[in-house]
């Protein structure tokens, strides 16, 4: 067990090293280099050279690579070209909002998915399950930015019951936390819908699969009620893959939230990423991409370890 965990840890570290190198290569694949995007395309060679020297871009790429690693290990991600602030500071400022949106959306989608998945799994092959299947497909096929904008149009503009974007500062907003929460409802609903479309499908299939297993037949044969079997055994077993799926779907849901945050002008990481990408502020973009990659790798590692605890067979695969 300890050996398996060590091995899993080591492969994760190796993956992280490759990830950092890929992101480094990405930022250096820029034509003309960042100096042009800061100074404009008509910059004089002398100005470009001076700026490159100031940004540390005049040394060979392998030196830059090791310097980058050195800075990363110290937790430094460089300075934003545009805002002239440390990237770590910027990310810290926007991360909280994204986490709030994200955790809210994941909680919403997990709760809804468990309910929807149970109904779908139990009625598999009959009309309620088919209806749910159609809903899942529709939710998946609607572009998130379209859903978000429709929410704005109806809840915000037509019926005027919810704010359409942004977020208020907890310290200055008049009704305080309540207003803050009201700003979160539409973004959370939009990201949550995206999450439900995928999660509930997996969960429904997994409930259906569990119901056809021998232990269910045995439990029913020895006189347990269907309800007791469903909530006592099937639910628990069907929930197990959900941990892994949540880990795997993290990047997908984040990608969705980039679009959602830009629809709602919600000041989270996705919004920061979009603004920085449009103005070619590479240090910010690569910092966010790196952070997401690290979160995903660590998240997958944790999901594997949790699964190993829930079911020791998993970790030996």
């Amino acid at each position: 067990m300890i050996r398996m965990i060590t091995k899993r840890l080591l492969t994760s570290i190796l993956t992280l090293i490759i990830l950092v190198s890929v992101v480094f290569a990405m930022t250096h694949a820029t034509p003309g280099g960042p100096a042009f995007s800061i100074l404009g395309q008509k910059a004089t060679p002398a100005a470009v050279k001076a700026l490159n020297a100031r940004l540390g871009l005049n040394v060979p790429w392998w030196d830059q690579y090791f310097i980058w690693w050195w800075h990363l290990l110290q937790g430094r991600l460089g300075f934003s070209y545009l805002l002239n602030r440390p990237v770590t500071e910027l990310i810290a400022e926007y991360l909280g909002n994204t986490l709030l949106l994200y955790i809210g959306a994941i909680m919403l989608s997990v709760l809804l998915s468990i309910g929807i998945g149970l109904v779908q799994g139990v009625t598999w092959g009959r009309w309620p399950a088919r209806l749910i299947g159609a809903f899942q497909l529709a939710a998946y096929a609607l572009p998130t930015f379209f859903v978000g904008t429709m929410f704005i149009l109806y809840f915000g503009v037509e019926w005027q019951i919810l704010p359409t974007g942004g977020i208020t500062d907890l310290r200055i907003a008049h009704p305080g936390a309540l207003d803050y929460a009201r700003h979160l409802i539409l973004p959370i609903l939009t990201v949550g819908l995206l999450g439900v479309s995928g999660l509930s499908r997996y969960f429904g299939a997994s409930v259906h699969e569990e119901l056809n297993k021998d232990y269910v037949r045995t439990a029913l044969a020895k006189g347990l009620t269907f309800r007791a079997v469903l909530f006592g055994h099937v639910l628990r077993n069907a929930l197990r893959p959900l941990v892994t799926i949540l880990g795997l779907s993290f990047p997908g849901i984040f990608v969705g939230s980039v679009l959602v945050e830009s629809v709602f002008n919600y000041p989270g990481l996705g919004y920061l990423l979009w603004r920085s990408a449009l103005s070619q502020d590479y240090p910010v973009v690569s910092g966010i991409v790196l952070l997401l990659g690290v979160i995903t790798v660590v998240g997958n590692l944790l999901a594997d370890l949790v699964n190993g605890l829930l079911d020791p067979r998993e970790i030996y695969d």
Binding site: T11, L14, T15, P251, A277
Partner: peptide, 23 residues
């Protein structure tokens, strides 16, 4: 597989946004 794990951890559309804004 290690390289693939690294790529799987990068959200595709985010990388896409990065390069699309660049090029």
């Amino acid at each position: 597989m290690r390289v693939l794990d690294a790529f799987l951890a990068l959200p595709g559309l985010v990388v896409l946004i990065f390069f699309a804004s660049l090029l």
